[in-house]
Design a binder for these strands. Sequence first.
DNA 1: TTGACATGCAACCATTTGGTTGCCTATCAT
DNA 2: ATGATAGGCAACCAAATGGTTGCATGTCAA
Lengths: 104, 104
Amino acid sequence: MDEVFKALADASRRSLLDRLHASNGQTLNELCEGLAMTRQAVTKHLAILEAASLVTTFRQGREKLHYLNPVPIHQIGERWIRKFERGRLTALSELKRRLEKRDA
Amino acid sequence: MDEVFKALADASRRSLLDRLHASNGQTLNELCEGLAMTRQAVTKHLAILEAASLVTTFRQGREKLHYLNPVPIHQIGERWIRKFERGRLTALSELKRRLEKRDA
DNA sequence: TTGACATGCAACCATTTGGTTGCCTATCAT
DNA sequence: ATGATAGGCAACCAAATGGTTGCATGTCAA
C-alpha cells in the first residue's frame, strides 16, 4: 500500500499512468515521446510503477509493452479514501466536545 | 492536487490523518503521544498536511487544535481514482490492437 | 511573578529521490 | 553480416525529505 502511495506521489508518474490509461500497452519509447525527460528517467519511473503493481510489462521481441493495472488504485479508493468520506463530524461539534472535556 | 498526493505519500502522515479521523481536534502533544518521533518531526508533518489542506488548525490559548479536512481526499477519489475504475480494456484486447497496428 | 507547559524557529544531518551521461546488449531489417 | 533500433545497467549528481538537537516564545496556574 505504501509503495502505491509513493508511486502516485510524483506528477510524472501519474502522467505516465494517464498516458497508459489513454492508450494501454505502449512501449518504452512510445511513452517517452514528447516528454521532457530522458528515456532512462522514464525507465526508472516505470520501474517504480511496476514495483507498486500499477503497471505490468512483458516483452515482445525487442519491445517492452506496458500495461496499466487499475487494481491498486481501486483498492486505495476502497480501503482508504472511503473511510474518510463518511463520519465527518463537523469542526464545531468537535470543538464543543473539546471544551466540555476541558471544563470537566 | 500534487501537494495532496505528496502529503499522502508518507505513512507517518497517513497515520496522523487516521488519528485525527479517530478523534478530531487534537493538540500537537496529543498527536505526538505514543509516536516514535520527536514533536518537531510531527510538527513538520502536520505543516505538510496543512499546506495540502488536509488538516486545518487554529489556536486556542496556548494549544493548537488540529482538524481533519476530508475534502481533498474526497476530490482525489472523485477526480482521479474514478477515472481509472472504468474503461479498463483488457490486456489481451490491447495486445490484439497492437499486433494489428504492427501488421499494418 | 514565576515555573511549568505548549508550541515555534533554525541549523544541521543522512538518506532518498529524480534526473543525468556513457556505455553495453539484444533484436530486427536489409 | 551489419547498421539501426529498443532497451538495460551503472555511476554520478543536486536537491528534496525526514529526522534530529538546541533554544526561544507565549500562555496558563499557583
